[in-house]
Simulated assay, not measured.
Amino acid sequence: MGQNSSLPPEFDRGVVTTVHQGDCHVSAAPDVTFSTVLGSCISACVRDRVANVGGMNHFLLAEQSGSAKDRYGASARYGAFAMEQLINKVLSQGTGKKSNLEIKVFGGGKINSALDDVGAKNIEFVRQFLADEGYVAVGTDLGGTYARRVLFKPHSGRAFIKRLDSDVGATVAREEMALASRRVVVPAPVDDIELF
């Protein structure tokens, strides 16, 4: 009995890669599992169902900048960059066809009153991004008042969500608070470059 004996068998073996905030990992290996813990952050899992290659990102929108450029200013460009980076990596390692992609999105929990609307903004952002790009998520687990662990098999596309108890959630909330309060805004990619 391993410590992960509550996991479905396919998630309880092989190589587990942790996806931290700001990361984007892609693999086609059958024995790879991507793992992340989300509070108000979002992780998207994108897979090319024909090439059996998939990936996971993990992002938190920064503070709203008040820019007139778009509703969330630089932070939405950061979220869009996180989504585009993942989609483009999967496309380049897969068939290159957007119609072969399946997308699942997770997170956006409200686990701390100080991060009151961050999860909701993240959810609104990712839904709008997918709609604007013409994608439909085939699976979601968004919102709620708990942190969650997400495990994703990029080869098969299977995802497993475990809701975490409140003391784990409190730790996740503290980490996210520290990141959000730094107001780190990642430089946006230059707007006039077309990403394929």
Rank of each mutant, 00 (worst) to 15 (best):
S6L: 13
L7T: 00
P8G: 13
P8A: 15
P9E: 15
P9S: 15
E10F: 07
F11R: 05
F11C: 03
F11D: 01
D12H: 02
D12Q: 09
D12T: 00
G14P: 04
G14H: 05
V15T: 14
V16L: 02
T17V: 14
V19P: 14
V19F: 14
H20K: 15
Q21C: 11
C24M: 12
H25S: 03
A28Y: 05
A29I: 03
A29N: 12
A29S: 13
A29Y: 09
V32I: 13
T33R: 03
T33L: 02
L38A: 09
C41E: 10
C41N: 13
I42S: 14
I42W: 15
A44E: 15
C45Q: 03
C45D: 01
C45N: 05
R47I: 05
R47V: 05
A51Q: 05
N52T: 10
G54W: 01
G54S: 01
G54V: 01
N57C: 11
L61M: 07
L61Y: 00
G66I: 04
A68Y: 15
D70E: 15
R71Q: 08
R71C: 06
R71M: 09
A76S: 11
A76L: 06
A80Q: 13
A80G: 11
M83Q: 10
E84W: 09
Q85F: 00
Q85H: 01
N88S: 13
G96I: 11
K97C: 09
K98R: 15
S99P: 00
E102C: 06
K104I: 06
K104C: 14
G108M: 05
G109N: 09
I111Q: 13
N112I: 00
S113K: 02
L115W: 01
D117E: 10
V118A: 09
G119F: 01
A120G: 06
K121T: 04
E124H: 06
F125H: 15
R127A: 07
L130K: 13
A131M: 01
E133F: 04
E133P: 01
V136N: 12
A137T: 07
T140N: 02
G143P: 12
G144I: 01
T145V: 12
T145W: 12
A147P: 04
R148Y: 02
R149P: 03
K153P: 05
P154Y: 11
P154F: 12
P154W: 12
P154T: 06
H155N: 12
G157F: 07
G157L: 06
A159P: 03
F160E: 15
I161V: 08
R163K: 14
D165M: 00
V168P: 01
T171I: 05
R174Q: 14
R174M: 11
E175T: 04
E176M: 01
M177S: 07
A178C: 07
A178G: 03
L179W: 12
L179Q: 13
R182T: 11
V186W: 12
P187V: 09
P187D: 14
P189T: 02
D191M: 08
I193Q: 08
E194S: 00
